[in-house]
């Protein structure tokens, strides 16, 4: 499967483990979201689709790593509840501890991969040698 730029698939016996990078915190979050969407249904977000659902997400967390995992979990839940994939996202605000995001979702009959959860396992946002934000994300599938 081809993943978005800045994403590397790492070995994992049962689940899906990604290394995700971004030049900024918002870019890291958006790349994480794009990766999850690609896993759910490859190519879906590249197609022209009508927006069927708009959601506003407001979150607080003790640090940016928890904020990222909670953000992806929240979007996964909203997608499951509304049978949608949220391909587009803009941040009204984002910091290490909170965010306000506007999400645009498109209806989907059935996804290709059942992601049960976005886990905290090995997640840790750090600045890498290139000065980019980087973290592991493990999806329970």
């Amino acid at each position: 499967m081809k993943m978005p730029k800045g994403v590397e698939i790492l070995p994992h016996t049962a689940d899906i483990k990604l290394k995700v990078t971004g030049e900024s915190l918002p870019e890291l979050f958006l790349t994480g979201l794009a990766s999850m969407n690609r896993l759910l249904k490859p190519g879906f977000c590249e197609e022209e689709q009508e927006v069927s659902r708009v959601e506003k997400v407001e979150l607080e967390a003790p640090d940016s790593t928890v904020l990222l995992i909670d953000f992806l979990s929240e979007v996964l839940t909203l997608g499951s509840l509304n049978r949608s994939i949220f391909c587009d996202c803009s941040f009204e605000s984002i910091s290490d501890h909170n965010l306000v995001a506007l999400l645009e979702g498109r209806s989907v009959n059935e996804v290709d991969l059942d992601i049960k959860a976005v886990t905290y396992h090995e997640a840790d946002i750090v600045l890498n040698d290139q000065g980019n934000f980087e973290t592991i994300i493990v999806f329970d599938v």
Binding site: H12, T13, A14, D15, T119, Y120, H121, E122, V138, D140
Partner: peptide, 9 residues
Amino acid sequence: GHEGYGFPI
């Protein structure tokens, strides 16, 4: 058993 996330399977 094998690797999981947190607890192993």
